[in-house]
Design a binder for these strands. Structure first.
Lengths: 157, 157
DNA sequence: CTACATGCAAAATCTTTGCACCCCG
DNA sequence: CGGGGTGCAAAGATTTTGCATGTAG
């Protein structure tokens, strides 16, 4: 709570506004969430946090992330491994993903042109978009180059 | 096996080619899979099949669908409810989806222009696309109209 | 006959819930 | 104090796996 980053203020405001409590755990989880890559699973985060805060349970992380999603600080994304990952949403514009099925690397991209076409299509169908996701699966540049010596660590099930 | 649809021939060829067996169950599962909407979960299919073939277990359906996916007769898609759904792939061109979060309706769309832009983006990143999915979540025309009397049957978790 | 297929039950995973206890406001 | 929060364990839900048995080729 000695951390005065603006993000914490956002959480603070959200909690107050919704009559929720400002617990120590939530601040810890938010701090670690913001300090990590931004494509973490609950378990990734749990393992990181456990090192410094062994008393914080998985359940709390699940619940904290839900609060963050509601507070627009995080966004849940799903790739193809059955796990939910959480992205930073605060001050992080919308984008979509390219996921390397070889090494798991996640590249972000944004195409205003695609977004526009998407809106046109939805409109043609009378469909009111609330959210979308556009994911490409394949090999990143690095893994395409080293195709021969396949380092197995695929993301798929 | 008195069904001589071309799709069965494709499965037949695939099984033979891969040294797999042409079991009665696989034909039954394929028949029902092809007769249904094409966005079925394993359980949807299981419940339909169970009525006529109570001896066929869930496991067999899981395994049969895996064979169909390998045989390019089906494709696994995931929306946002944690379930894997299976689409008809045979003679069914690639397309993407709009999913109504109100009534669960799935609309299909295809935009060659988006596909082209997508390829350009991937190329710029040196990313070799193997597959992709582009999903929009929101309200279909029908549910947008009847927004007031909300018929709760959402797809989301 | 041999190898793959099946079906049941058990295991594996990820996530949610029940509940007693804790603590913020 | 009171209502939300936490943590543990148990429950849920979906999918996979082990194993004995069945059957296609």
């Amino acid at each position: 709570m000695d951390d005065v980053r603006e993000e914490f203020q956002v959480l603070d405001d959200y909690l107050t506004k919704h009559g929720l409590k400002h617990s120590k755990q939530r601040v810890v989880v938010l701090g670690h969430f913001l300090d990590t890559s931004g494509h973490m699973t609950v378990d990734d985060l749990f393992r990181v946090i456990r090192r410094k805060h062994p008393r914080i349970g998985r359940t709390t992380i699940y619940r904290a992330l839900k609060v963050f999603v509601d507070a627009q600080l995080a966004e849940a994304i799903e790739l193809r491994d059955g796990l939910t990952r959480f992205e930073h949403k605060f001050l992080h514009a919308h984008h979509d993903h390219m996921i390397c099925t070889e090494c798991g690397t996640i590249l972000e991209f944004l195409s205003p042109e695609i977004e526009r076409l998407q809106d046109e299509i939805a409109e043609a169908y009378g469909f009111a978009i609330e959210s979308h996701r556009h994911q490409m699966f394949g090999r990143c540049q690095k893994c395409t180059r080293s195709r021969s010596r396949s380092r197995k660590k695929a993301v798929g099930r």
